[in-house]
Amino acid sequence: MQTCAWLVWHPFRFPWKELSVTIYKTGVTALPITALVGCLIGVVLSYLSAQQLQMYGANVYVINLLGIGILREMGPLLAAILVAGRSGSAMTAELGAMQVTQELDALAAMGISVPLRLILPKIMGLALALPLLVVWTNIMALAGGMFIAYEKLGIGFKFFFHRLPEVVPIVNLWLGIGKGVVFGLMIALMATYIGLRIHPDSESLGRGTTRSVVISITLVIILDAVFAVIFSGVGV
């Protein structure tokens, strides 16, 4: 809080460099893994629904299923879980290791604010990077699903593209992106909080990193359920 107030008075001291490092580390480097996982989940979803829908001759509804399922649920959830696993743990471990080596003390002794330079950019960076990753995961999952829809059900890409915005309200996409922001904030808050509470020994470091991942993923799923209840009437 104090840090935020200070920043209002000193806008030029904003840690831009640290922010961009976080976005690169949590966002850019996560592109391949989220693409792979997203695409495969899209394929699986499409495959399963294709088999069921074929029985009723409701082939065309695969677009509804994929659209809502991915944009609203799977995209944000997958991206958040992957990020919690790779970036949440990395943040906790980084801060914990800095605690072990007294780097945090050294920074504080030099008058460098740890909340401003290490914590704030991580939280803001992840709150920015995760929604972008959600969009990316959405695209890849839809692409995977679209491919299977074509293979199994003979739904052409062009038709898929036309039909998607007609049957899936755009609010689902925004809902997914909004979830991305909230998940990102939550993962970074949890990771940095646990990281700063690590005691200077290696056992505590390992335990803290594990806890950070487990708690983040659990909280992501709980929050996702809360979202589902709150927004049950929106966009379906």
Partner: peptide, 24 residues
């Protein structure tokens, strides 16, 4: 202050470490 294990910022080069308080 010189901490027991040095406490250099491990993500920075030696140059940047020494420059850190100056740049601050």
């Amino acid at each position: 202050v010189l901490f027991q294990q040095g406490a250099l910022v491990s993500a920075m080069t030696v140059f940047d470490n020494i420059a850190l308080p100056l740049r601050e």
